[in-house]
């Protein structure tokens, strides 16, 4: 479609001259000396980091982002804290009877559920972070860099694990202040944080799948929030399933919250009750594996340059 191929070439000298003139005409806008020092000659290939370096780089960025947004950190703790304080104060007297008395106070009963709630809220924000990264262009910026994809997501996930650990610890501290006692002591408290982390994986994966499929922060926030309260209430979180209506009892049996709460609660109320803890962990791990596989599939598609 280009017309007239004749007359090409042969005038390279003249062309070069024209470019030089142009350059002269526009020089002097900035400080050439300063430019020269900053713009060193190209160097070939960037050295890149090892896998752990990539994980560390991304872990640091997501931690920094979290710290820069203390508001989000506080607000995401607000609901669980309100639940813990108000439920204990308002329903405490009634509920202690409902959970069967026996020296068990409601705050001890409720605290492990609130730890799971914290994990749920933190996991929900994982997808929101991903969507925002996509909207900020940072997702693409990371993909065009030589960093390992797995390292990138591992770094982000580790930063979320750190956040869940800190927030779960705060809840355990607050619960203790309100009078809760952990039957298994400090090792049990650490194990409860561990259960919260294991619990968070499936919901983290879920919220990332919503994020990558919708690429819309509102949709991701709504999907996470809409699910939270029903999931919590239709589980063993606030009252023992035995005293709940039949249909709720049925649903709570397939509700992952129930498994997280039961395992954590056993450590608070009963001690190292492996017969409760191990089956619950097994269910959660299976769930984690299933959801994580789906998430890895979609994240891989979104980041592997395949046209879709």
């Amino acid at each position: 479609m280009s017309r007239g191929g004749d007359g090409e070439g042969g005038e390279n000298g003249k062309r070069g001259e024209g470019r030089e003139n142009r350059r002269d005409g526009e020089a002097g806008i900035g400080d050439a000396g300063r430019l020269r020092s900053a713009v060193a000659s190209p160097r070939g290939s960037a050295p890149g980091n090892g896998f752990l370096g990539d994980v560390w780089t991304n872990f640091k960025r997501w931690n920094l982002k979290a710290v820069r947004n203390p508001f989000v950190l506080v607000v995401s703790l607000l609901n669980p804290v309100i639940f813990l304080v108000l439920f204990t104060e308002v329903f405490g007297q009634v509920a202690t009877g409902a959970i069967g008395g026996g020296g068990v106070d409601y705050v001890s009963f409720l605290m492990p559920a609130i730890v799971i709630q914290v994990a749920l809220v933190a996991a929900a924000t994982s997808g929101i972070g991903l969507v925002q990264d996509i909207e900020d262009g940072m997702f693409e910026k990371v993909l065009v860099s030589p960093m390992s994809r797995v390292g990138v997501f591992a770094g982000k996930t580790l930063s979320e694990v750190l956040r869940i650990s800190v927030q779960a610890t705060l809840i355990l501290g607050l619960g203790t202040l309100l009078g809760a006692r952990i039957a298994t002591g400090l090792p049990g408290a650490i194990a409860i944080v561990g259960i919260a982390i294991v619990f968070s994986v499936w919901f983290t994966a879920f919220s990332n799948v919503v994020a990558i499929k919708t690429r819309n922060s509102e949709a991701t926030i709504i999907a996470a929030n809409v699910l939270q309260l029903p999931l919590l209430f239709v589980s063993s979180a606030f009252l023992p399933v035995e005293i709940l209506p039949g249909w709720i009892r049925a649903i709570s049996g397939v509700n992952p919250i129930t498994y997280g709460v039961d395992a954590a609660r056993a450590l608070v109320l009963d001690g190292w009750a492996w017969e409760t803890i191990l089956p619950s962990l097994a269910v959660l791990l299976a769930l984690d594996l299933a959801f994580a596989s789906i998430a890895v599939y979609y994240l891989d598609r979104a980041s592997s340059a395949t046209v879709d």
Binding site: A46, R61, G137, S145, M147
Partner: peptide, 27 residues
């Protein structure tokens, strides 16, 4: 690579943005 849509992390400072890029490329 500089994308058509401006790509910076709004929550990081200018310095931290450049630093992250340095780390990403293993400077």
């Amino acid at each position: 690579y500089m994308a058509q849509e401006t790509s910076v992390d709004p929550e990081l400072t200018a310095r931290e943005n450049v630093k992250f890029a340095c780390e990403a490329y293993g400077v």
